[in-house]
């Protein structure tokens, strides 16, 4: 029997009961993410993309259907998952290095020498060498988000959840960050669920794109990206990327017009 997929959604729904009434965020969502696959989730704002991530992380239980990680239903917060948020949300009083080791200090109350070495490695990997003693405030938005990524990778999680991580950055920084991210995964493969509302970003970075519709969020279609993992700035010029991006754009806009 084949090993179970890293993540599996099976007819999953999520209904929030607000004061104004029931709000259906997700309906009948089914998809799988294979081990070490990079899945981009693309959709209009308010289609429940972030809700999806919170259910994988175990911060939110589905109201119908199921969410499985490695073949087991998610029942509570999972520690083997790293989360990168839209905003870096660092601790302004802590140095970059302390921010990276924060998950360990927060969980156990102390940081070991091994953790500090690991943090140093991660800072090198994310291009923040020499910035360990700086405060977040002294860093640019892009560098702050790199700290956020390093923090998410401290515990070496198998699964990395990224919630529009580059949406607050300028276009150029955004591209560079994306390719740097792929480079990092080349050495240490991770299963990635990457939320975005940029069609180009989805086409450039992902192995597969899950296109969603809005309110309630449902899976519109899944599209495999016809590119290898070895991507860089020159990939931007490839026809396949542009074709895919415009196809994705059509899917999103067509749905909105209808």
């Amino acid at each position: 029997m084949a090993p179970p997929p890293a993540i599996r959604f099976d007819r999953t729904g999520q209904v929030f009961s607000a004061r104004s009434g029931r709000v259906e965020a997700l309906r009948d969502v089914s998809f799988e993410v294979a081990q070490h696959e990079f899945l981009a989730v693309l959709g209009p704002s308010g289609c429940g993309k972030s809700t999806l991530l919170r259910m994988i992380a175990g911060l939110l239980a589905p109201t119908s259907g199921s969410v499985e990680v490695y073949g087991r239903p998610v029942t509570g917060p999972r520690e083997d998952i790293g989360i990168v948020f839209q905003k870096p949300t660092l601790l302004p009083w802590a140095t970059v290095e302390e921010n990276v080791t924060f998950p360990r200090r927060h969980k156990t109350g102390r940081v070991s020498r091994a953790d500090r070495t690991r943090a140093q490695e991660l800072l090198e990997m994310t291009g923040l060498e020499g910035f360990g003693k700086r405060l977040p405030d002294e860093l640019s938005g892009g560098m702050q988000q790199r700290v956020g990524i390093a923090r998410a990778l401290l515990m070496d999680p198998e699964i990395l959840l990224m919630d529009e991580p580059f949406s607050a950055l300028d276009a150029l920084t955004r591209e560079v960050m994306g390719f740097d991210l792929l480079k990092m995964f080349a050495d240490r493969p991770k299963t990635v669920v990457f939320i975005t509302h940029s069609v180009t970003e989805a086409a450039l970075l992902a192995d597969r794109v899950l296109v969603m519709t809005g309110r309630p969020g449902t899976v519109q279609t899944e599209i495999a990206v016809p590119l290898g993992r070895d991507r860089g700035p020159e990939t931007l010029k490839e026809l396949a990327v542009n074709d895919l991006a415009s196809h994705l754009r059509d899917l999103l806009i067509g749905k909105r017009a209808a």
Binding site: L59, L91, H106
Partner: peptide, 26 residues
């Protein structure tokens, strides 16, 4: 406090007093 950090704290299954001393109070 930024809700993201509270989610981070919850996802780490950190004890509640550390959410207070390391995130909320500062």
């Amino acid at each position: 406090t930024p809700p993201e950090l509270i989610e981070l704290s919850r996802s780490l299954r950190a004890p509640g007093f550390r959410e207070m001393t390391q995130i909320r109070l500062p």
